[in-house]
Design a binder for these strands. Structure first.
Length: 637
DNA sequence: GGGCGCTGTCATCTG
DNA sequence: CTCAGATGACAGCGC
């Protein structure tokens, strides 16, 4: 028996080491450090298991509010947040730096000896409080129990205690000899004597998994000696490749997706990276794969702060037969497929029909047009527009006030007033017009802006008088109208002159009401034409920009989908391994009658804080179902 | 002759 | 209120 216990202890230690190798941090002395606040006793239900977690403190006072620990919304919130952080942590390939804590409490014959006390290997003072609370209850049960089993916190799986000095402490690692273990056990036993030890004490999960608490009745009977069949080494050997499997997958991800997420797109920040963008970390960052940043940060000691728990989404094997699917589905949620669907629904493929050369040529054409217009002095080059037949003399000038159509013979008759419009156009620099096109709303005639209105008007008038008769080949309607009025200004000048000068022009030329209206319309239409050109240009630019964004997002989407696929595979494999491990471990555990725990009825559950406990599958499932039923009932008014 | 793109123009809104 | 700019809508024109 002694040999078997020793063998099992060594096996558990190896198991612990292997978990460490695969990244599951095994914190052997979490509670020995005394960092945690005293653990709170929580009635775990009929399983008589006791949650030993300081998380209640944080949970009950989350965000500064007193929240009831059983608040389902809080459960949902913390679970969602934990899962989100886990998913985020998955974005950085690394090992599994989490912490698995388990302690094995066993019942020994109540003969009054030291070995009778259940061995809380963690030796945490906080355990003493809990144990004190349950001391009497345990004493009552102790008589009928031979040995108890519990998976201790800190992954300290103690040997079944049937004889004194057989406990191996978690601090004893692989290289420690049994003598050293015994000495430590003696020391520990001294602590246990001062603290009421609990019998059949199962480690309970944190507040996040309160719904998974075990009932005392559902707890398996105290286990007697744990037998170690020869398959133990085989079982342990299976995890050799498990160690290398996940990191290898992650390395593949790293190789294939060195930098899959773009920095300048806010979509993934909102979806995936959240506050801590994956890109904010260097690619070589060895951020833990399963780092859990939110749930334990407030209560973890510095040594634990960097080590999260195994994602419960992966390892919460609470009676769900489709565990792989569960993990995969949970993983699938972090990449919101709907967002990508929406991107697909954009259907901007027709934007590809836009020829970039056309847009590039647009600029050149514009320039050419303006250069041509500079020759003709006309920016309103729409010669193809209205026939503008001067012969339609029957039209009244006043009829034009309502719109841009129609020409008046009266306008034709006014042509004697000016006739130097072409010269005036040549005085207008096309560069100034280009400034106006590109939203430089400054009116740009150097002559006009460097002089007063009257001097500007006089200078222009003197210049245009000397040059006339040079009618441009193609004039717009407005240009012809202005020219017909005989004004010494071209339509281009009227459009682009400052408003003060334009008002002075209207006042100084002794224009009739219809003429004033015509000039205002000319100016308005000319400005609106430029505005329309600018507007169309901006619209095309916006379309091109959006097209580029669509292409970039498409590339990013493909990369994220590949990453999700790889991650889901890795998670599925890890879940399979863990399930195998759980079943194997459970098959080697014995109740007080020497019966092995049926893996179909029990499972190992890893809580968010890394603690491992034995959990009946049916209990959790039934409780979950009960809660679901309650929720359904609650929805019904 | 119809479709399509370009352009000018109008109406309307906004600052 | 006026003015300038922006923009959707419409129509004319050329290809």
């Amino acid at each position: 028996m002694h040999h078997m216990k020793k063998y099992f202890t060594e096996g558990l230690i190896q198991f612990t080491i292997l978990l460490s190798l695969i990244g599951v941090r095994v914190d052997v002395d979490t509670y020995l450090s005394g960092y945690f606040s005293p653990l709170i006793e929580t009635d775990g239900g009929p399983s008589s298991a006791f949650i030993q977690t300081p998380f209640h403190h944080y949970r009950d006072t989350a965000a500064g509010h007193q929240v009831h620990p059983k608040c389902p919304e809080l459960d949902y919130f913390f679970t969602s947040r934990r899962l989100l952080n886990e998913v985020r942590a998955l974005g950085s390939p690394a090992r599994f730096p989490t912490r698995v804590s388990a302690w094995l409490v066993h019942l020994v014959p109540d003969d009054g000896s030291d070995v009778d006390e259940p061995h809380d290997l963690s030796g945490d003072p906080g355990d003493e409080e809990i144990n004190a609370e349950n001391h009497r209850e345990e004493d009552d049960r102790r008589a009928g129990e031979g040995c108890g089993l519990s998976v201790s916190q800190d992954c300290t799986v103690s040997r079944p205690c049937c004889a004194a000095g057989e406990l191996s402490k978690e601090e004893t690692l692989l290289n420690q000899v049994n003598e050293e273990e015994e000495e430590e056990v003696k020391d520990e036993r001294g602590q246990e004597e001062t603290s009421p030890a609990s019998l059949n004490q199962l480690t309970q999960s944190s507040a996040l998994e309160q719904e998974d608490l075990l009932g005392s009745n559902s707890l398996p009977p105290p286990l007697s000696g744990l037998e170690l069949p020869p398959q133990w080494q085989d079982f342990l050997s299976e995890f050799d490749d498990f160690d290398s499997m996940v990191p290898q997958r992650m390395s593949d991800l790293e190789a294939e997706l060195p930098n899959p997420i773009s920095y300048d797109v806010s979509l993934q920040d909102a979806m995936v990276t959240g506050g801590e963008s994956a890109n904010s970390r260097p690619a070589s960052s060895q951020t833990p794969l399963f780092r859990l940043e939110s749930t334990n940060s407030s209560h973890s000691d510095p040594s634990q702060s960097s080590a999260g728990a195994l994602p419960s989404s992966l390892f919460c094997l609470s009676g769900n037969s489709s565990r792989n699917e569960t993990s995969s589905s949970q993983m699938g949620g972090y990449l919101d497929e709907a967002v990508f669907d929406q991107i697909n629904m954009l259907d901007l493929g027709n934007l590809g029909t836009i020829n970039p050369q056309m847009l590039d040529g647009m600029q050149g054409d514009m320039d050419a047009q303006w250069l041509e217009d500079s020759d003709s002095g006309l920016s309103l080059e729409s010669s193809s527009r209205s026939p503008a037949s001067p012969s339609s003399s029957s039209d009244s000038f006043c009829e034009d006030e309502g719109g841009a159509t129609g020409y008046s013979s009266e306008v034709e008759s006014l042509s004697s007033k000016g006739g130097a419009c072409a010269a005036a156009y040549r005085d207008w620099s096309p560069m100034n017009l280009m400034e106006n096109i590109w939203h430089d709303h400054t009116y740009s005639t150097s002559q006009a802006q460097n002089s007063t209105s009257s001097s500007w008007f006089t200078a222009i008038k003197q210049e245009v008088i000397s040059e006339d008769e040079a009618e441009p080949e193609e004039m717009s309607r407005d240009e012809r109208r202005v020219q017909a009025m005989g004004l010494p200004f071209s339509a281009f000048q009227i459009v682009n002159m400052p408003v003060e000068n334009f008002l002075e022009l209207l006042d100084s030329q002794n224009l009739s009401g219809s003429e004033v209206t015509l000039l205002r319309d000319v100016r308005r239409r000319g400005k609106n034409k430029l505005a329309a050109q600018n507007c169309r240009k901006r619209k095309l630019d916006a379309i091109l920009s959006l097209q580029g964004e669509v292409e970039d997002l498409s590339v990013q989407r493909d990369a994220l989908l590949r990453q999700r696929s790889h991650t889901a595979k890795a998670l599925s494999a890890a879940a399979e391994r863990f399930e195998t491990l759980s079943r194997t471990v459970l098959s080697h555990l014995r109740d007080e009658y020497g019966h092995p725990l049926n893996p179909e009825h029990y499972t190992l559950h890893c809580s968010a804080n890394g603690r491992v406990m034995v959990q009946p599958r049916t209990s959790t499932s039934s409780r979950t179902m009960t809660r679901q039923v309650k929720r359904k009932k609650g929805k019904k008014p």
